[in-house]
């Protein structure tokens, strides 16, 4: 069973729906016990970095998240849920993140041709082999919507070009993170969830 962390962050139901569509069982939960007993954990994210961290604190979820990561079961952060895995975020003030990946998350500066938010379908190219992308061609399109990005290359698995070249996926041991929304990326997005869930099953 895959635990999707429920902390009032936007449209999280679309994440559970995508996991179910990929053929796996999932729970939207903020219960530490359910998270502990899961075979893998997904941290979704829609909203501002600081707000999200505050909500994780409010629901006492930080320890559960860190324990899951230490337990070596697969962990997947999505969008702001990915950004939270870095040391710091600069959205509406400076906020401390979970520090699994080194580096911080900063705001895009728009230019004459490239607007902010970075909104729409953009290509993702690999910088290393990562199981999350099994069976997905290099340079495939995924759906992005964000104004902040990580300027860190720490454990980078894939990059995307928009305004600058930025890290669009990272992976360190059992921890995976993607800046785009697989649950909004049609067939290839479902493939990401299928790959992740398969890893969860293999681990437990």
């Amino acid at each position: 069973m895959i635990a999707v962390i429920d902390y009032d962050a936007g449209n999280v139901a679309s994440v559970t729906k995508a996991i179910e569509k990929a053929g796996y069982q999932t729970y939207l939960t903020k219960d530490p016990k359910t998270i502990k007993n899961s075979s893998g954990v997904v941290l979704p994210g829609v909203g501002a970095f600081g707000d999200c961290i505050d909500k994780l604190k409010k629901y006492n979820l930080i320890d559960s998240i860190l324990e899951s990561i230490e337990s070596k079961k697969p962990f997947l952060g999505i969008c702001v849920g990915f950004q939270l895995l870095f040391e710091e975020g600069y959205e509406f003030g400076i906020h401390k993140g979970l520090g699994i990946f080194k580096g911080s998350c900063v705001k895009f500066t728009p230019n004459a041709n490239q607007k902010v938010p970075h909104m729409g379908w953009n290509t993702v190219y690999y910088t290393k082999v990562c199981k999350l992308f099994d069976g997905i061609k290099n340079n495939s399109y995924f759906y992005f919507v964000h104004s902040y990005y990580t300027d860190s290359d720490d454990n980078c698995a894939a990059k995307t070009d928009y305004i600058c070249t930025f890290t669009s996926a990272s992976q360190k041991d059992n921890v995976y993170g993607v800046q785009f929304h697989p649950e909004k990326s049609q067939i290839l997005g479902l493939k990401i969830y299928e790959n992740f869930c398969r890893m969860c099953e293999e681990t437990c």
Binding site: A13, S14, K17, K21, Y143, V145, K184, Q186, I187, L190
Partner: peptide
């Protein structure tokens, strides 16, 4: 609708 589609 939302239940059945995987796009924004």
């Amino acid at each position: 609708c939302a239940q059945n589609i995987f796009m924004p």
